[in-house]
Structures are given as C-alpha cells and as structure tokens.
Design a protein around this nucleic acid. Structure first.
Lengths: 224, 224, 224, 224
DNA sequence: AATGAATGAGGGTTCATTCAT
DNA sequence: TATGAATGAACCCTCATTCAT
C-alpha cells in the first residue's frame, strides 16, 4: 500500500516538469473542447464536470484551476466557439466587390448553408435554453454576434438599394428576415432530423431566390 | 383553459372553509399551470417540484398522485399548452373561403403574430432545449404539431397556385419558409427583448409582403 | 363536474346498506389475507398499504379503520396465520394412542412435511427478518408457538423413554433437534428452490429414521 | 479484517493533523464495517446510509464514491463477511487426517459452535429476509457458500462409509441434516436469546452424539 | 363504514465545489 | 500544476398516516 503511494509520488514529480512545459498554454482549450462536447451531448444542467474532466484526460480538480465555476466554463465555451466563427463570416461578406445579388447568392448563401450544417446548433440550443438564466451571457452574445450580424446584412441590403439593384423595402428594418430560415434549418436539424430529414441547402436556396425576387428592382421598370 | 382557471378561483373563494374539497377534476390542470410557470421560469432541470407544488398551493406529494414523474409532468405541460393551440389555428385557417392572398394576409398573419406574442415561447424554448433528451416527446410534437402545420401551409400554397394566384415555386417544398420569421420572433423575444426590442408584428407583415410579392403571378403577364 | 359528484354520492348511499350488512364481520380477515400476500411477496418494509388495500378491494383509508398502524396489521397477520396452525398440529399429535415411534413416524413426520411444504415459510421469513425490530411480537410468538411446540415434542420423547421405547438421551433437553431439519427445509425452499431443488419429504424421512435409530432402545438389550 | 482495523486506528491517531489522508485503500473496508453494524441493527430497508456514513466517520456522499447504490453496499457486506469465513472452515475440515468420527467431533463440531456463536447470525438473517429480493445475491451465496459446505460434509460422510466407520445411510443425500441444528441455534440466538437462553454448544454436542450413534457401524456386527 | 385526496417527513442519490497533498 | 478524496446541499420520489366528506 505504501509502496503504491510512493511510486505514484515519484511518477508525479518526474512528470511534472514535462507536462507543465508542454501543456501550460493548451489546458484551457482542451478543457473547453471537452466541455463543448459534454454540453453538446447533455445540455448545461446534465453535463457533469466529472465527465468534462475525463474527456479532457485530467482530474476534476484541475478544471477548477482554470474555470472558477461551471457557469464560467459554459461562458468560455460559448465565447470560444461562437465569436470567431461569426467574425470570420462577417469578414468574408464585407470583403466582396461583386454585385449585391452575387454577394448574397455567393458568400451569404454559402455562409448560411455552412452554419445550418455545422455543429453550431448545439451552442445555439444551449443559448436558447439557458439564455434566460444567464442574462450577461445573452447580452454578450447579442452584442458580439447578433448586432454585428444584423449590421452586416443591413449594410448589404442598403448597398443593393443604393446601387439600384434592389427596390426600397422595409426589409432594411428587419434583416432578421434574411437569416430566419437558417435558424429554422438549425433547429429542425437539431430536433427532427432523425424523424424527418430536411434538405437544408435547397431550402435556403429557395429562400434566397424568393427573397431576391421580392426585392430586386423590376427589369421592365427601366423600359420607358 | 381560461375558463378552467376562473372556475377554480371561484371555487377557492367559495370553499375556504373546507380543506379537502373534491378537486380531482381540477387538480391536474392546476398543477400543469403551476408547472408551466416553473418550467418557464427555470427550465426543465432547474425547476423544482417543491416549487411547482407551492405555486399550485398544494404539497409536493400530491403532485405525484397525478404525475408519476417530473418528466411526465413536463410532457403533460407540453401537450396541454401546445396541442390545442395549434389545432385551433389549423381550424381557423382551413375554414376560410377567401382569396389565398386574403387568407394569408388575414388569419395566417394574425396567427403568426399571435403565436409570436404569446407565452408559447416558453414551451418552444423548453422543446428546443430538452428535445434531444426526450425523443418520444419530440416525435409526438413533430407528429401532432409540425406535420399538421406544414400540411396546412402547403395546401394553402397549392391552393394559390391552382387558382392562378401564385406562380409555381419551390416554396411548396419548403413551407417552413413561411413560418421561419415567426420562429425568429419567438426566440428574439425570449432572449433579447429586454436588450433590444423588436417590432414583431411589423416584421411579420414585412415578411408576408415580401413573400407574396415573390410568389404572386405578375399582373403584367396578363396584359397581351 | 358537480353532476359527477352528486352521482357519486347517490351511489354511495345506495350501496352502503348492503355492503355494511354483508361485510361487517369479514373485513378484517379480508384485509389480513391481503396483507399476508403482500408481506409474503415484498417483505415488511417493501409492502405498501396501498397494495394491501387494492388486493382487498377496498380503499387505503379503510385499512386504518381496522388496524391502527402498519405494524398492528403485521402482527395481526402473524397471529392469524401462525397460531391456529400450530395449535392444530399440537392437538393432532397429543391425541394419538399409538407407539411413540408410530406417532413420530406418523403425525409428527406428516406435520413436519406439511409445514415444510406450506406457505408458512413466508411468515417464518418475516419473523426472522423483522423479529429484532418487534420484540413484543417475537415474545408473543415464542410464548404461543415455540414454547408449546417444544413442550409437545419433549412430552413425546419422555413418553417414549417412560414406555421403554427410547433410551434416555439428552435429546430431552433439546427438542429443537427434532424440528431443526424442518427449519432447514423451510429456509431452503424459500431461498434456493429455484436454483437447487431439495426433496424435503425424503430429507425429513431420513432425519426421522436416523433420529429414531439413535434413540431407540437397542433390541439386543432385551435378549438376556 | 482485524489487522485492517488496527492499521486504520494507528493511522488515525498518527494523522490527526491531516484532514485528507490518503485512505483510498482502507475506506471501503471501513464503510463495509460500518454498514455491517447498521444492517445488523436495523435490517436492510431500515438501515440509513446517513447512519452508515456517520458510523464510518465520513459524509454520506463519500459512501457513494465507493458503492454505487445501497444494494451494492449490501452485497459487499455479505461478500466480505461470509465468504472468507466459510472458506476458512472448509479448509480446516479438509486438512485433517484423523478418524472421520474424530474430525466430526473435532473441527466440524468446533466450527458449528463457532458459527452458532458468531455474529454471522446477522448476515444470515439479512440473507433470509432479503434473499427473495436479491436473486443474484442468493445465487452467489448458494454457489460460493452452500454448495461448498454441502460438498465438504458429503465427502466427510462418504469417507466414513468408505473406511467402514459408518454404515451407508441416506444421510449422504442430505448433508443438510448435519448442519441443521447449527441453523436453529443461529436463529434461536437471534430471536429468543433474551427471552429464553439456549445452551447452543450442548445442543450441538447432543446432535453430533446422536447423529454418530445413528450412522456408526454397529460394533456387534464384528462379532461372528 | 368507507373513501381517496392530501400531507410531509424521510431516504437514496447526484454533483458542483473544496482542499490537503 | 495537478490530483482525487471528501463534503454537503439539494432534489426526486415514496408512502404511512390523516381527515373531511
């Protein structure tokens, strides 16, 4: 028995140096990855820190070294997984020099398809489920993701109108309408996919078709 | 549902003397109401049956007389609150004899506004959050609500096409596109309403406007 | 709702007279029977009064009219099922006029076989299991059943010795030795019967054979 | 077992300063000891894990670190206390080289006295009481303890017959008859000891006397 | 006599969190 | 940094018991 303990201690000392060197920077991310999986699989309340820890291959106690509480860890997951993705998307959209229609049919549609197909559902579900219990997180999310997303889309619509491609419509007031089907796709996949598959990509294409049809300046209007 | 509540209140006041009035018929509904509030406020995992009980003005044990487990109670809440509402909506829509456009601008839009403004958000949130953990409930919900809703809308679109009001579009394949903004409205209200109000009604009107614009048979096509 | 209540009341009044007449005397026994089954199936702690009541075809409340507590009911079961049986056995044994050996090979062995095969196991198990928690019951059981049983057997042995059939042995001090195999049979059946059947009757016959062989006056002793 | 306890005590005194000494190796045994006491005093259903924990000087939660459920703990108690004892007994009996009669009057009788006097009653009571509810435990017990015990005794009888010490009797078929009085002694002590003491040792001696008398080859058979 | 709605204490179990090492 | 033993509060659920009718 004592032998066992001593051996363990020796190992620990021998391994400490190496591990520390190698892992110092990576630990939090490893934990966040593991937590993402756990939260994704179980939801916030059902996710157990024990399982997060073993998924990350560490002890439960170590989780607390990096994240003060379960809630902090949850927030870290949301931040880590949502923000960079959305930032990337926004960048891609803004950069383009094409026709507005081309941008919408191109990067915007692609982005929507991508999001609808990604594992972001999981985070979204968490957000919808836990949002009311984490007001600061919701607020953060709104500020960092939603506001920016809305702004990008609104600019795009305004750009189309300014260039005479689109007729002025109240869509400017409600850019949410552009992304609404993406949300439906996400939720559908999360809930009903096993029962009733939905061709998300085709649906989004149809949506963009109809939307453009509705807002494009009618060609015959140019004929005097 | 409201009728039930009123009766209950009357009984309560009238019967303050008796401790043990025969409530068997009303109890389940009372408990379901209370549970709805609890689940709405806390989410499934955080809702405590103790609190459900005190909200209903009864003891914890009595909850278990009517609902075998917390999960059963949850399912009862979903059934009670969702199914009748959706059934009513479907009926209202099907009954009409108007132009398809009139139906959409009338009962359909009204319904969407109503749903978006109602407390159904709460149930929807629960469903999205807990869905993956309650496959039978999700399946039930899909069968009873979603399938029917989709069918109603699809019929409506087909009706418009058949009557020459609408041009044929792939919208028929994706009736979800019609209700997508309602979902966004629901979720927005649930999450961001305190931060950033959204004129749900106006958004839905805009949506219907654009959608009809996109699918209506162009009038100039009739001019020879 | 009110209609329902009124109907129920009417029924009740109509049926009360008949039921009372017929059941007054039988109720306790019916309940005891039901309780025996329940205790037998589940053990004391696991037996639920709800199930006892429905087994008896009555409401839970009525059980409390006849038996103040669960424990009282348990005691009633033990009394009702054990005492009369043992009394009957004792009577049967005492009445005989045969050789002591004949009595032992006849009624005693028969009785032991009978007991070993009967559902008394159940009560015995309850007694062994719950005994230490119900000292008064144990004491009652010892006084009413054990003491008498021991006395009957001791008298029988003494009778054999007095008549010169048996040689004097310390068996007189320990009549328990005569019934010990019956106990083993009971317990074996209760625990291991499904795994490893035991021919209880043959075992008891063997036991009696050996016992008589051991205590009978050797025949050659009579030869001068 | 005793060794374990002593070590534990020493550690405790030596380590009063440390709150969190590494006890992993000893904890389970400590808990099992405490549980044995609890189950013995209250029976399975009435034993509270809270009390087990405080008896062991730990918190309730820690019990669950080592034993998944109350039932697991119960099984651990049975395994820990029964198996080693019976194994020891079997070993002791098999080793001997004496006359079969000497073995029976020696180690076998001693063993039976020992068991009858030990606290094994408690476990036996638990087994009888809970057996029907824990079929796997019963089966385990039958396989590990009963079968082996029966086999040992049967071999002993056969040995006596083979060596001409015993005459052939159906006792071979029912080795249970050899230990039956031990069972009676156990149960008697458990239930009636406070009311009506029984000289267990004397009873077992009488039993062995009578049994040997019954099966020994009659000496006059040697006289031509 | 009979009902059954209602109670509430109590127990098994889980798990986020702490802390000595 | 890293461990994992240990804690304890909290929650779901059960059921003997009561009591108005």
């Amino acid at each position: 028995m004592m032998v066992g303990i001593e051996i363990r201690c020796i190992n620990r000392e021998a391994g400490t140096v190496v591990r520390n060197e190698r892992r110092k920077g990576q630990r939090p991310d490893e934990i966040i990855d593991a937590a993402f999986e756990e939260f994704a699989a179980k939801g916030y309340a059902e996710a157990r820190l024990d399982d997060v820890a073993s998924r990350a291959g560490i002890s439960k106690g170590l989780v607390y070294v990096y994240f003060k509480t379960k809630e902090e860890l949850f927030k870290a997951v949301v931040r880590t997984f949502l923000i960079p993705r959305f930032a990337a998307l926004a960048g891609r959209i803004e950069a383009s020099e094409d026709t507005t229609e081309a941008i919408i049919r191109g990067p915007v549609l692609a982005t929507m398809k991508e999001v609808a197909a990604s594992r972001l559902v999981i985070i979204l579900r968490l957000l919808i489920a836990e949002g009311p219990k984490h007001p600061d997180l919701t607020e953060f999310y709104h500020r960092e993701v939603i506001t920016r997303g809305i702004a990008v889309i609104r600019q795009l619509i305004d750009r189309g109108v300014a260039r005479g491609e689109f007729r002025p419509t109240p869509l400017t007031r409600f850019p949410q309408l552009v992304v609404a089907p993406m949300l439906v796709a996400l939720i559908w996949r999360s809930l009903f996919d096993s029962i009733d598959k939905l061709d998300t990509a085709a649906m989004l294409e149809t949506h963009i078709d109809l939307l453009l049809h509705a807002i494009k300046t009618p060609p015959e209007a140019n004929v005097p």
